[in-house]
C-alpha cells in the first residue's frame, strides 16, 4: 500500500490542476464560514436573543462548520473525478496493470484518495471550527457537539465514493463531472423531495441526504423541530452501507472489465 501511495504522489506532485483544485477545496472551508459568520453577525441582536445562541458559539460552532462545509465538499468530489478519469483519458490504467499492478491496486490507489481527501476535509474543518470558535464564541471552548464533524466526514466519504464509482464506470472526464455535479446538486434533492412526499421518511436515506439529515443547520433545528425521522445511528449505518456498496461495485467492475 505504501508503494501505491508513493506512486499516487508521483502522479500529482507536479500536476497543477490537482493543486489548484485542492487549494480551492481547502480554502473554501474557512472562506464560506467567513461569509456565514459575516451574515450571522448582521442578524439583529433581538433575533439572536430569540434564537438564544450565536452560530459560532461553542458548542454549536462544530455543527455550524460541519453544516456549512457540507455544501462545499463537492469540490473534493470534482478533484477525485479528475484523478480517476485521468487514468482512462491517458490510458494509464492499462499501463499500470501492464507494468505490474494488480487490477485491485488501481481501485486501492483511488480509495486512498477517498480516505485522504476526507481526512483532509475533516482536519481543515476541525481547525476552522476551533479558530472561528475562538474568534466569535462568547462561550468557553468545548468538545461537545464535535460529533457533527464526524457526520460531515461520513458525508464527504460517501460523496467521494460516488465520485469514485462514477469516474470508474463512466471513464470520460467531462461526462463523469457533469453527472456527479448533477446528482449531488440537483438529482438527489429531487429524489429526496419526491420520496418524502410519496413514501415518507425513507427519502432521507439517500446517500447524500442521509448526511444532510445528520447535519441540520444549528440553532434553527431547535426552533423548527428536526425533520429527521430516524435516529442518528440509522443514518450513520446507511451511509456506511452506501460507501461499502459503491466501493464494492467499483471493485467488481474494475476486476472484470476489459481495459
Amino acid at each position: 500500500m505504501l508503494n501505491i501511495i508513493r506512486i499516487e504522489w508521483l502522479k500529482v506532485k507536479n500536476y497543477r490542476t490537482f493543486w489548484i483544485l485542492l487549494i480551492l477545496a481547502v480554502i473554501v472551508i474557512p472562506a464560506s464560514n467567513t461569509i456565514v459568520a459575516d451574515v450571522v453577525s448582521r442578524i439583529p441582536k433581538q433575533a439572536t436573543d430569540i434564537l438564544g445562541r450565536n452560530f459560532y458559539d461553542f458548542p454549536v460552532a462544530w455543527q455550524t462548520v460541519a453544516n456549512v462545509n457540507s455544501f462545499t465538499s463537492i469540490i473534493f468530489g470534482l478533484l477525485l473525478v479528475t484523478l480517476v478519469t485521468n487514468e482512462f483519458t491517458y490510458k494509464t490504467h492499462r499501463q499500470l496493470v501492464i507494468d505490474g499492478w494488480e487490477r485491485l491496486d488501481l481501485v486501492l490507489s483511488k480509495i486512498f484518495w477517498v480516505v485522504a481527501l476526507a481526512l483532509l476535509a475533516l482536519v481543515v474543518s476541525f481547525i476552522t471550527a476551533i479558530v472561528f470558535g475562538m474568534i466569535y464564541s462568547t462561550a468557553p471552548f468545548s468538545f461537545e457537539g464535535v460529533q457533527f464533524l464526524f457526520f460531515y466526514f461520513l458525508q464527504v466519504l460517501v460523496s467521494l465514493s460516488i465520485a469514485l464509482m462514477l469516474g470508474m464506470f463512466i471513464k470520460r472526464s467531462g461526462l463523469a463531472t457533469v453527472i456527479y455535479l448533477g446528482y449531488a446538486m440537483i438529482f438527489e434533492q429531487l429524489l429526496t423531495v419526491g420520496l418524502k412526499h410519496s413514501v415518507g421518511a425513507i427519502g432521507g436515506l439517500l446517500p447524500l441526504q442521509a448526511g444532510d439529515e445528520l447535519l441540520p443547520f444549528p440553532v434553527v433545528d431547535k426552533v423548527l423541530p428536526s425533520s429527521s425521522d430516524y435516529s442518528h445511528g440509522v443514518y450513520e449505518i446507511t451511509i456506511i452501507l452506501y460507501i461499502a456498496l459503491f466501493i464494492g461495485l467499483t471493485c467488481r467492475r474494475m476486476l472484470k472489465a476489459d481495459y
Binding site: 502522479k11 507536479n14 500536476y15 497543477r16 490542476t17 485521468n86 491517458y90 490510458k91 494509464t92 492499462r94 499501463q95 501492464i98
Partner: peptide, 10 residues
C-alpha cells in the same frame, strides 16, 4: 502494448 500510455502533464 498498442500505444504509449503516459501522463501527458508529466
Amino acid at each position: 502494448l498498442e500505444t504509449p500510455n503516459f501522463y501527458h502533464y508529466l
